[in-house]
Nucleic acid binder design. Structure first.
Length: 589
RNA sequence: CGGGGUGUAGCUCAGCUUGGUAGAGCGCUUGGUUCGGGACCAAGAGGUCGUAGGUUCGAAUCCUGUCACCCCGACCA
């Protein structure tokens, strides 16, 4: 395709409101333009990349036995009232009225619509299992859209929903989707990790996130690897289980006593004031857990994690206690501690990391005072131990005992075992072989198509621009004509035609621009292979071939006669690598 | 939702404190010279200064409302 025929508005200057790399580069390289906060037009280059991602998703979903359909983007409020999410979802759900005054929503996700469909159409166990998916525009009215396509309000998502006769079959499909997702992200040419994740408001009891590894990722994950360096376990830090620390209990020293610590309320203040390390100061965080006051205690260098706290207490709701509420329960905000605590209504939960520690400092439960030389066991008894803190690199994994490594990731896919949450709310039942009416058991599986493309850029770029993985690049080859002499243009045209005949996509830069301008633009756009034709090298009878990941010095000079075949081989090799990676990823996970 | 900030040419921004009728660079158009990593010279086109109202002889500039957009935070004591 000829550059002069395409709308590729590249810009030199960095747009002021782009703070992350993918957003900046998509704007600069002419992929997207903003229409409103979190809402973007996908220009031709972006549309090509999104189509490629979507097609990979489509092929792998079909391969895994799922069927594509397309639901309406707009849905009537009644469906959402039926599932209960009309009230639960909050302002992220975009609601509006039609001309008759009826309430409608623009779908942020489609559990209701699909469940209603299956409820109406599926009556017998003979019609199950079903896995139905769509690739569609979603709208979530994010409180704070940011980072371009990473966290937009409107975005393209593949969402799949499966229906089963029992838990076992739903789990089988979950594993099937997990494998398909491994193949999808490997085929996109991305480095990623599947990690255990919180089920959040979607519910259910089994969930994995697929995280594209990138330092700019919003999510923190930890993982362990086996002796061959293959991932053996991974989880989002907010739920990664931590094993009890392996160390001998410390010997308690002098008896505990109270010291004055006026206006020293934070861990940092107290540690500095008393000349101690943060891990010697106990952090006591006050929560309201299912209407009970709870003091969660951990080392001062760690953070109490609400999701873990909720799990540890088997609770439904967790929030922080306000200072006033804490005082009414007999607690002293800023000076709370587990030792010498006189507050019978308060449940104390202590993180296992505190076990066997001595020489500690904690709040004395009196304004302006802390208790020092505190020893766990001697100075406070623990009724409930729990794994309460957010996992970090260096912690030992609670599943296999290995030491965690940490990474940052961008969540591009998520698989959930839903169970009967929606089928029971919306009465999606079928009749079994034994004539008994049962609820469908469901799973749901999402992939952010536009976010995957953005994540690919976060993971693959340099100072000059994007470095697209070949399978999702807008074009395979950037063909740069140096100068516009007839000989150069003829040769370039012939090469373009030869490649396109073999299904290789070429962005032929036929603009009347200086070479420097063209090189800069192609570096920005980031197609994996660049071919330069004309000028000095053509006089030597060669064209110059360079991978986007190569340096200038690594440019290969290929005789004109061999150029077409050489580049065809190069591109085929890049694409084949990704397919091979898909097979490997599937077998490894 | 809380706090902060910004709206001036297609883009990045200056001008606002101290009111006097709008600027630079990039981009764009035309002509010329150039031509292997974002060239140079010359001549141009392009703005109801977000918007509504107010103060004033006079408002991009001061005041009020409003809209849009951006950043930080929204469990870390």
């Amino acid at each position: 395709m000829r550059y002069t025929k395409l709308l590729i508005p590249t810009v030199k200057e960095t747009p002021a409101d782009a703070v992350v790399v993918s957003h900046r580069l998509m704007l600069r390289a002419g992929f997207i333009r903003k229409l409103a906060a979190g809402i973007y037009t996908y220009l031709p280059l972006a549309q090509r990349t999104f189509t490629k991602v979507a097609n990979i998703v489509r092929e792998e979903m079909n391969r895994a036995g799922a069927q594509e359909l397309l639901m309406p983007a707009v849905a009537p409020a009644e469906l959402w009232q039926e599932s209960g999410r009309w009230d639960q979802y909050g302002p992220e759900l975009l609601r509006f009225k039609d001309r008759k005054g009826g309430d409608f929503i623009i779908g942020p996700t489609h559990e209701e619509v699909i469940t209603a469909l299956v409820r109406d159409e599926v009556k017998s166990y003979k019609q199950l299992p079903l896995n139905l998916y769509q690739i569609q525009t979603k709208f979530r009215d994010e409180v704070r859209p940011r980072f371009g396509l990473m966290r937009g309000r409107e975005f393209t998502m593949k969402d799949a929903y499966s229906f089963h006769v029992d838990n076992a079959d739903a789990h089988r499909e979950y594993d099937n989707m997990y494998a398909a997702y491994c193949r999808i992200f490997a085929r996109c040419g991305l480095r990623f990790r599947a990690v255990e994740a919180d089920t959040g408001s979607i519910g259910g009891n089994r969930s994995h996130e697929f995280q594209v590894l990138a330092d700019s990722g919003e999510d923190a994950i930890v993982f362990t690897v086996d002796d061959k360096g293959r991932p053996s376990y991974g989880a989002n830090v907010e739920l990664a289980p931590i094993a009890r620390p392996e160390r001998a209990p410390e010997t308690p020293g002098q008896p505990a006593c109270v010291v004055e610590t006026p206006h020293k309320k934070t861990i940092d203040d107290v540690a500095k004031f008393l000349g101690l390390a943060h891990d010697r100061v106990l952090k006591a965080v006050l929560f309201l857990v299912d209407n009970n006051a709870v003091m969660a205690v951990c080392r001062g260098d760690r953070d109490v994690n609400e999701i873990k706290l909720k799990k540890a207490l088997g609770a439904k709701q967790v929030r922080l206690l306000t200072d006033d509420e804490a005082r009414r329960k007999g607690l002293v905000p800023g000076y709370a501690g587990p030792a010498a605590l006189d507050a019978p209504e308060v449940t104390v939960v202590v993180d296992i990391g505190v076990q066997g520690l001595a020489g500690l400092v904690c709040g004395a439960n009196k304004e302006g005072e802390h208790r020092v030389q505190v020893a766990e066991g001697r100075d406070f008894a623990v009724a409930i131990w729990g794994d309460l803190t957010t996992a970090q690199k260096g912690d030992r994994c609670g599943k296999n005992g290995d030491v965690y490594d940490a990474a940052r990731g961008i969540e591009v896919g998520h698989v959930f075992f839903l169970g009967t949450k929606y089928s029971s709310a919306m009465k999606a039942t079928f009749q079994g072989e034994d004539k008994v009416e049962r609820l469908c058991v469901m799973g749901c599986y999402g992939i952010g198509v536009t976010r995957t493309a953005a994540a690919a850029i976060e993971q693959n770029h340099d100072d000059d621009g994007i470095r697209w993985p070949a399978p999702i690049a807008p074009f395979h080859v950037s063909l740069v004509a140096l100068g516009n002499e007839a000989e150069t243009m003829d040769l370039a045209s012939k090469m373009e035609g030869a490649w396109e005949a073999q299904g290789i996509e070429v962005l032929f830069d036929d603009r009347d621009e200086r070479p420097g301008v063209k090189f800069k633009d192609h570096d920005l756009i980031g197609c994996p292979v660049r071919v330069a034709v004309g000028g000095k090298s053509l006089k030597e009878g060669v064209v110059e071939v360079k991978l986007r990941t190569d340096t200038k010095e690594q440019t290969k000079k290929v005789p004109v006669a061999e150029a077409v075949a050489f580049v065809t081989g190069l591109v085929s090799g890049l694409l084949a690598d990704a397919k091979r990676a898909a097979d490997e990823a599937e077998s490894r996970h």
